[in-house]
Amino acid sequence: MYAQALNAKDAAPAIAEDPVKLAVFQARIDAEEKIEPNDWMPAQYRRTLIRQISQHAHSEVIGMQPEGNWVTRAPTLARKAQLLAKIQDEAGHGLYLYSAAETLGVSREELYDQLLSGRAKYSSIFNYPTLNYADMGAIGWLVDGAAIMNQIPLCRCSYGPYARAMILVCKEESFHQRQGYAIMLAMARGTAEQRAMAQDALDRFWWPSLMMFGPHDSNSVHSELSMKWKIKRFTNDGLRQKFIDATVPQAHYLGLTIPDPDLRFDEATGHWEHGVIDWDEFNRVLAGDGPCNRQRLKHRRDAEADGQWVREAAAAYAAKQRKAAA
């Protein structure tokens, strides 16, 4: 998902780095040493990481919205508590990640500004609407499942603070996927109407989930350096294949049909072969023209504006307390 930023082209002009420092840096990376905030690093490594980590953080924060839509309408108190806990985790994940990005010398205020002004992106998946409660199951199972595929290799990212944040995130994320699958399972074992809801949710979220892994490797020319610097460990297609191979049998267990008529198991390779992904749709959503892009950003801007008086009051109170103590 969450590694979509690594598919973007680095727009800044290339700077000639000191070849000796660059060689020492690459040797450390090759030796699987972690790079820490105060260590020397190429300017492009820093920029790539700021972009990647902050877009990951934005994804977590925006990712609360599709689920927040169903908190008050979850079918039972237990399901409501589970959904709240998952959303709270996502807020926490966003905060770990913003903190990791800040170690690279960018401020929290700057990062928020990039999101709210629309300059920064977040994962394309959150621009799809959640039409009914079955979508909570599909999102947990598929979207969080795809996120985990992306995030587990990021635990071994060469940048220490990012890797450490990802370890915390992955520990908590497994609950998200399992609670999603539990919802799907309950619906699959339920009434005909519930089974139809589960199938409908799978139909709508399957292709967008596959798109989360980003363009095919043949069209993803910008990730080479990220691989060399061990920010990224696996290719888009490699991760997508792992996700499909893991998920198809889970769908079959539910008695649901993957909405891909070309899907077939290749005996020779042991992998599931998928049909053609609609990259026009992916590019449209990424460029801002998905079903919910405007709504998601407006909601985030409104929340920021509504919270302004709280931040001002907290700052004023802290200043008063400091004055009284002086």
Binding site: Q88, G92, L95, Y96, S99, E102, R108, R164, A165, L168, R311, A314, A315, Y317, A318, Q321
Partner: peptide, 17 residues
């Protein structure tokens, strides 16, 4: 890890969350 807060009390509460 780290977090942002205006005073120690709010920082402690946010750290818990």
């Amino acid at each position: 890890g780290s977090l942002h807060a205006h005073d120690a009390q709010m920082a402690l509460q946010a750290a818990r969350d």
